[in-house]
Structure formats: C-alpha cells, structure tokens
Design a protein around this nucleic acid. Structure first.
Lengths: 116, 116
DNA sequence: CACAAAAGAAACGCTTGCGTAACGATCGCC
DNA sequence: GGCGATCGTTACGCAAGCGTTTCTTTTGTG
C-alpha cells in the first residue's frame, strides 16, 4: 500500500517530525543510528553486526558503536549466539519498542496536521 | 492537505528513507541539523541564530555549530545583517536546495514503494 | 556620551563518532 | 589436532558535538 506524497508534503512531513522530535527528546540520534534501530525493529530477526553493516553499507565498528550507544540508552540489547559463539544477536527491548511506538505516533500526528 | 498514515506505514517510511539516505550519502546529519536545515528552507526568511534556537528549543551555540558544519558542507550561508549588525541572516544555497530536493524525491519514492 | 542589553561567536573541558588497523575468540575443515 | 577464515570488539588518532561561560560587536536609551 503505497503512500503518495507531493514534494511539499514529503519535506514538510520530515520537517515537522524532526522539529517535534528535537523539541521533545534530547536524545539526538544520528540518521545512521535511527536506520539501525528501525532495521532491528521492523525487519524479522535475527540481526547480527555483520548483517547490519552490510545492509547499511557501513563498516562493522560503526554498528558496534551504535549498539554501544543505543544499548546504554536501553533501546537495544546484545546476546551472544550460543549456536555460533562468534555471532552476536541483537535483541529488541521494551524501552526500544516504546520509543519507536511514540515516534510512529509523532509521524502520524504530524502527517495529519500538515498545513494545507 | 493532511497525510493519513498507519503506524506501519509511518515507521516503514522512516525506515526506508533513513536506510536509503545512509547508503547514498556519507554525510550523516544529526536530527537537529536536519531540523535546522529544513526550517531554513521551508519557512520564509529571515532566519537568525536566535530565532532558530528558540524554534528548536536549544541553545545558541548549538545553532552556531550546526551552521559551521553545514556551512562547510555548502548547505547554508551566513550574511551579516546590515540593518542591525548584531544579527546574522542565514541564507539558502544552491547546493542546499539541491540536497533537499534530492532528499524529497527520496521520501516520495520510498513512500511509493512501501510494501503492501 | 555612557552604559546596560542583545546577538552571535569563541573558549573550555568533555563526550561521542569516525575510519583504519589490529586483536582475541570461535568455527569449519582437512 | 592444527590452521586459515570469520565474527565482533578494541585501539588509535582525529574530527565534531555538547553545555556552560566568557567575549566582542553593536544597538538603543537615559
């Protein structure tokens, strides 16, 4: 189910959401961190460092650092894969789900209130 | 003209756009920087450091630094206000317009290609 | 004219992120 | 059992961001 947007709506929506999010939450995630977070929560598991790095087109340390940061914020969790102990499986958290749920609501509301 | 989105569409759109932007452009603007940039380009001028700080709910140095960075990237320009030389007026640039135009297209295309 | 107020920048010490390169742990396979 | 390959992390030197405070320039007002 595609979403059809005009250029003005597209940028206007991004503008309104960015602004609202900045005002409401001092956590200033980079676009990369946001992409990682959404990938983890919207795409079926399992997620690994290597897989995320390939998906995002960035190096592994970038993923490691983002997981450090977002782990400290409680947004994600890391668990060693017992079947192949070289791997780390990235887990979702309750707090992360809540964070994205609120963020989704924000998008919906800002979209609804777009100026005509 | 409001945009009606389901929770899945809202987060899915943000996910797809973030991912595509990360892959296509190594410039990793923070959410704050993006909010500032969009504010400058979507809201009628003039824009000042003080005004942006108030709009974003952040301190003035945050704006100064963001303008430094984005100025170095060619996305914005600063000009002293000749009518009140304490002020600095933030100007749009051709490169900044291009950047946002491409970004808008990206949003539109990702919205159009959202999974059903 | 003097002087407080205002705008923006710069300074300070700190934190976080970067890319590259090196590292330890673990696996698969001969 | 040994050994190259793979996975994630750590180390390194550096760039950029943060909040707070201080400074410089300019304005307006008594």
């Amino acid at each position: 189910m595609p979403v059809e947007l005009t250029p003005s709506q597209a940028l206007g929506l991004w503008h309104a959401v960015s602004l609202a999010q900045v005002r409401v939450d001092s956590r200033d995630l980079t676009l990369r961190q946001m992409a990682i977070l959404l990938q983890i929560y919207l795409v079926p598991p399992p997620h690994t460092v290597r897989g995320l790095a390939a998906t995002l087109g960035v190096t592994k340390p970038v993923i490691t650092r983002a997981l450090d940061t977002m782990g400290a914020l409680g947004l994600v969790d890391r668990v060693r894969d017992e079947r192949d102990r070289r791997n780390v499986v990235i887990k979702r958290t309750v707090e992360g789900s809540l964070y994205l749920e609120k963020f989704g609501d924000l998008i919906i509301n800002q979209g609804r209130n777009l100026p005509l």
